[in-house]
Amino acid sequence: MVNYRLKAQVFEVVNNQIRDNNPKCTKRTFHRLIDLGYSESESKELIASILIEEMYDVMKNNEEFNESRFCEKLDLLPKYYLQKSSDLVSEEKTQIIVRNEQKIGRNALCPCGSGKKYKKCCG
């Protein structure tokens, strides 16, 4: 699921950082990724992923923006992004889904509120 408004806002921040050259590492990383063969949108998406991660760390730990940490992560692109995404995939594979929901009996009233038996309504 993609929140297009949030994505547009994050891309606007990345565009502003590149335009204003603040922090300088953003524009430098953008040009480096372009030189490596990434398209403009792919480059901005990689930078945005690091920006989101940094924003998460700032909000989670209630701390100031750490420009040096942000620049270190940008300097490691695209390897850093690929490593993070492969770590997420391996974590997803090891998770087990456990459902603790009670099943609805065929003769129970339907939870949709129609007043009919489940088997004659939504079942």
Score class of each variant (00 low, 15 high):
L88A: 14
R99G: 05
G105P: 07
I96M: 09
C71L: 11
G105C: 06
E40T: 05
E54K: 03
F30E: 02
Y81C: 03
S39W: 04
Q95A: 10
I96Y: 06
L33D: 00
H31V: 15
E92V: 13
Y38W: 01
K60Q: 07
E91V: 12
S39L: 07
E101K: 15
L51M: 10
P78L: 04
S41H: 10
L77K: 00
S49T: 05
E63I: 14
I52F: 08
E92K: 13
E72S: 09
L74T: 01
L74V: 02
E67W: 05
R32H: 07
K79M: 05
L46Q: 03
L33A: 02
Q95I: 14
A48Y: 03
C71K: 09
L51G: 00
G37D: 07
T94K: 14
F65T: 01
D75M: 10
I52H: 01
E45L: 08
A48G: 03
S85N: 10
F65R: 01
S43M: 06
V58N: 02
R99Y: 14
Q102T: 11
L51D: 00
S49R: 00
S39G: 12
N61V: 04
L46F: 09
G105I: 02
S85F: 15
I50Q: 02
K84V: 05
Y80I: 04
V89K: 11
E45T: 11
I47L: 09
Q95L: 13
K84H: 06
E72K: 15
Y81E: 12
M59D: 07
I50T: 04
I96R: 02
V98Q: 06
L88E: 11
N62C: 05
E101R: 14
M55Q: 10
K73P: 00
K60T: 08
E63P: 00
S86W: 01
A48W: 02
M59V: 10
Q102F: 15
K73E: 02
L88R: 13
I96D: 13
I96E: 14
Y56P: 04
S49V: 06
S68T: 12
N62F: 11
N62T: 03
Y56L: 07
I50K: 02
E101W: 15
E72N: 11
E63V: 12
Y80N: 03
R99Q: 12
E67Y: 09
I52M: 10
L76F: 10
N66T: 06
I50E: 01
C71D: 05
E92Y: 11
E92R: 15
Y80T: 01
E53W: 09
S41N: 10
K44H: 02
E91C: 11
E92F: 12
H31Y: 15
S86Q: 07
Q95F: 10
L51H: 02
L76K: 14
I47C: 02
S90Y: 09
N62G: 04
F30Q: 03
S41D: 03
I50D: 01
E40P: 00
V89A: 15
R69H: 11
T94D: 14
D75I: 03
Y56A: 05
E40R: 06
E67V: 09
M55S: 06
E54G: 01
Y81F: 11
K103E: 09
D57K: 08
S85L: 15
K93E: 08
S43F: 04
